[in-house]
Write a protein that binds this DNA or RNA. Structure first.
Lengths: 214, 214
DNA sequence: AACAGAGTTGACCATGCAGTCAAGTTTCTT
DNA sequence: AAGAAACTTGACTGCATGGTCAACTCTGTT
């Protein structure tokens, strides 16, 4: 049975750990930093979790479902363009609401995803394959432009998470008063509206081979 | 004066250090790992560089110019659409040729860019501002679609670097035999061709503000 | 009040790691 | 060949860090 104090302290620890892990990476983070940030002593922290690994694992598992939800919510019965735009919007909202979580993931993946490999292979991959098949079907039916479905999904990840993951760089470039996400909505709306709209002028082939690539 | 042995060993060390730093981040990397990867002893490594920081700094400074070159090469006198597409292609090629360097940067920026702040503020920012002004001028002149120039630049960074930085994830999703960059060229060509093409039907104003953003 | 169990922590330990150093070996120059 | 300079390294130091533990305090229950 979990007590009131347990709930409060576990939450404190995980919140502090998210701050530290997302900013320093797993190896860069120290238990002392997490304890300090959470306002507890290090032994107390280890009273609630079995070790550094365990804290990190708890953060990741808490997060995995949240991370899949936007893609899960992509409705095969909905209007293709509306659904894709809505997915992009949800992912962008996640960069706004959960930038630390995004950076936690980015850190993990940058280092080869050692602690997420099984999640990616057994949960993310089948879901992506399924949604890619859906996107391909929509493209084949002419309801969206015939773009590669995997690259379409990756592009949404890249463009939305970039605002959370590279926040520091964007702030240094745009100036500290500027919110990196200002104008991102409008830009991405326009980008995906143009990208997935079914070809209006079907005869116009580009001057370069578009499908080339080794 | 630098000897033959110095040149060889410095190169070995930097190459090994790039492997290790890009895969583990600064704090995650150890001098022993770098020495091991480079086939030298740790004291020998410290004979050539003044410390861990110095090796990392040498890697970054070696890289900064390379990193700016693609954007520098964007020619104000060229055809806007051709120039932007060529910039995107150069950046994508860098993800292909220098994935470790891309991950080294990503690691740094994820952690708040502590060792790159002055570079970003004094070199990257003015260059980006300059090129953003150019893109804005092109948009105002109706030579490309009226998209926010900063977000356009950021989108190119996000989309191209994603293939290097999130390589591990893409491989796990697409299967190990699949090259993450397969088809990326074609996809990004299509995406940017559609995004920056000046509006074909000029009367049709979009339902949402496209140029919004401070 | 008083007891049990939950919660807390200062002091400590073992390991990992950046960096040093003295003593060695190799390479270059003449 | 031989001396100088460049190069190399085993052994070591000091500090940071993950984790432990015995002793302590607080909280809830009767």
């Amino acid at each position: 049975m979990t007590t009131r104090i347990q709930r409060r302290n576990r939450r404190r620890i995980l919140d502090a750990a998210l701050d530290v892990f997302s900013a320093q990476g797993f190896r860069g983070a120290t238990l002392d930093q997490i304890a300090e940030a959470g306002g507890l002593s290090k032994p107390n922290l280890l009273y609630y979790f079995d070790g550094k690994e365990a804290i990190h694992r708890a953060l990741l598992t808490d997060l995995l479902d949240t991370w899949l939800d936007p893609l899960r919510a992509l409705d095969p019965a909905g209007d293709p363009q509306t659904e894709i735009m809505a997915y992009m919007r949800r992912k962008l909202q996640m960069s706004r609401d959960f930038p630390r979580e995004s950076r936690l993931f980015a850190n993990e993946i940058l280092q080869g995803a050692p602690r997420m490999e099984s999640f990616i292979r057994t949960e993310l991959r089948p879901l992506v394959d399924d949604r890619a098949a859906l996107l391909r079907a929509w493209a084949t039916a002419g309801r969206i432009a015939p773009v590669d479905p995997y690259h379409l999904i990756f592009s949404i990840w890249a463009l939305t998470q970039h605002y959370a993951d590279f926040d520091a760089q964007i702030r240094m470039i745009r100036g500290d008063g500027h919110d990196p996400l200002d104008g991102a909505d409008a830009f991405l709306e326009e980008l995906y509206a143009r990208l997935i709209a079914p070809a209006p002028q079907k005869a116009a082939a580009g001057p370069r081979a578009v499908t080339g690539g080794a």
